[in-house]
Design a protein around this nucleic acid. Structure first.
Lengths: 334, 334
DNA sequence: TTGCCTAATGTGAGCGCTACCGTTAGCGCT
DNA sequence: AGCGCTAACGGTAGCGCTCACATTAGGCAA
């Protein structure tokens, strides 16, 4: 029993051919109940663990789903992965994670690595890729689901919200509520395309309404409550007239709220706050922060479903574009 | 160019044998610079993507690392995954994620699935497994790193903190600070072994000091600020004399703090609060909550390093047990 | 020259499965 | 009896690579 048992050993023990053993273990038809039972018993008693590498090579498809995101350190992508994982559970497919750090060249490398597994599908955050990456994805025969964002041209499928619209909607909402001294706090990362799109949409609506964006604070590192708090303080110190701040993330707006709490600013009386994502941590705070729901979990679920749905149909058929709505949650801070 | 190009095609184009092409692409020695360049150019111009399934089958080892955790919906495991992913980046290895939902039978299934990939290593949260799972892991020839916890007998390697000690230390700290009206709020999940160990250690020290645990609130769903807030309110309503609460998670203790803020209780004057994990969200709140650092990211990093380190040595050599210290951060709430 | 050594390359022989097709046995029907 | 049909099973030929071992070419000492 030194070596790991192979299918051959199981077959021998069950007195059937390898083929029958293979069918029995995979739950394929054309096997009598008696044989199936013998095979399963043999497999169990030998402690047989199938070799997916061999199986998938022979059948020319794998049970892996690539999941490629810019980061795992925010609250955003882990929750998407959670949705993917929940939907994939029980299907026999498993997600392989790759992180790009908002770098399109790293993304290309990760995509290449993923494709070398001949995965059943690829879930990638964002619609922006460098030209090599696009080419690889297009000629790869692997169904691709681009997630989070729908503002662009997907390769096959796409599930997300329009971040442009999210920005525009929030700007309209703020204007509608009468705010005119508006500021923005967000990430500076030039490769966070979605944050950029939100800001662009936001600014566009303000411009249309001839309302200036009074101030803007940008940061490069990850979002955090502390950063939100510090930048809010800094921004208000420099622009005391601002009475409404739009943040690129809820984590940051929570920091804003904490600043207001600790220095006695009334919200939304003195300062209105709005974030983005609708994170779970917003629940239970002294005030319900205004935000936009980004459907993280649902996007993960839907992306995984799209890939599961690809079993029957042929590979790269017409892509589906599933647009979710960036619903604004008004909360108590506007 | 209908079919995906194979190594054979690259070799033909570069005028070398498959073997030389294989060596050239893998960066193995024994290839002249000229040949290597020709091969790489050919590969690029054909858009060649190697097939890991075939390659790994032939070389009998894969570039996958299994990562098995009970859940992805808390803040805990995504951050561990982040550490794993960060360390693995650039090594050519990639993490495959499996979720067990705190169910040892699901865990067994996930382990079986993972092992069928003949992964380079397996990272599993927790030291508790059912006997089948243990058996599979032991006879699998795959290095196993059990993480988070060190209270138990690891299969090979182990990286984590002692949760018993974390509970004991916090109890001592509370007693030392003079608290005697102590309560606990935590998860009821019978399969969250680590939370149980913390509570056991906590209770043991209280018992030694003959200090009763005045009250205890348990919940079954995931931790959240809202839940922490609600249960704190409920507990205090039933036990107004309690002046110190230990929570099984920081997310919950933040909820406790929010409750105090909103009903004017002074912290720690009226009520002292302590949590567990040292989550990032603790930074920037009105008060720095007391907590214990659980070294999530570091555990992920270290586990991945252990697996990377396994390249040279032989597979299942003496296991390393790496114990990190559950350092208490006193903060402002004790 | 001859021999020996090293660097660079090539040649089978699989890795452990599954797709594809062929075979066999058993049954009901005319 | 002879036919067709289906359920159950098996043999063969790979999947696309890499290992372990040749083999070749060139360089240098004796």
């Amino acid at each position: 029993m030194a070596e790991t048992p192979k299918l051959k050993d199981v077959a021998k023990m069950a007195n059937v051919s390898e083929m029958t053993a293979s069918r029995a273990l995979r739950g394929v038809s054309d096997v009598s109940e008696a044989a199936r039972k013998r095979v399963k018993d043999a497999a169990r008693s030998l402690g047989y663990v199938p070799n997916m590498l061999a199986g998938n090579l022979a059948s020319r498809k794998s049970n892996l789903v690539g999941f490629i995101v810019p980061s795992l350190s925010s609250f955003v992508f882990p929750e998407v992965l959670n949705g993917v994982s929940a939907t994939l559970a029980g299907s026999g497919l498993q997600p392989v994670t790759g992180v790009t750090e908002y770098d399109l060249d790293k993304e290309e490398a990760v995509i290449a690595q993923m494709l070398s597994w001949r995965p059943r599908g690829l879930i990638i955050a964002g619609l922006e890729h460098n030209s090599n990456a696009r080419k690889m994805l297009e000629k790869s025969n692997v169904p691709v689901v681009e997630i989070m964002d729908v503002d662009g041209t997907p390769i096959h499928h796409c599930v997300g919200i329009s971040h442009q619209q999210a920005g525009r909607d929030m700007a309209r909402k703020l204007l509608e509520r009468g705010y005119r001294k508006i500021a923005f706090i967000g990430t500076k990362m030039p490769k966070d395309f979605r944050a950029q799109k939100r800001l662009a949409g936001f600014k566009a609506v303000l411009a249309e309404a001839k309302v200036p964006l009074l101030a803007q604070e940008l940061y490069t590192r990850g979002s955090s409550i502390q950063t939100g708090r510090d930048l809010t303080a800094k921004l208000l110190a420099a622009h005391p007239d601002v009475n409404c701040i739009y943040y690129s993330s809820d984590v940051m707006s929570v920091g804003g709220l904490m600043h207001c709490l600790s220095c006695g600013l009334s919200v939304p009386g003195d300062l209105a706050l709005a974030g983005f994502n609708n994170l779970e941590i917003l629940n239970g705070l002294p005030l319900r922060l205004a935000t936009t729901d980004a459907h993280r979990f649902g996007i993960g679920e839907t992306a995984a479903e799209l890939i599961l749905g690809h079993s029957g149909r042929d590979k790269t058929k017409a892509g589906e574009i599933i647009t979710m709505l960036p619903t604004i949650e008004i909360g108590d801070t506007l």
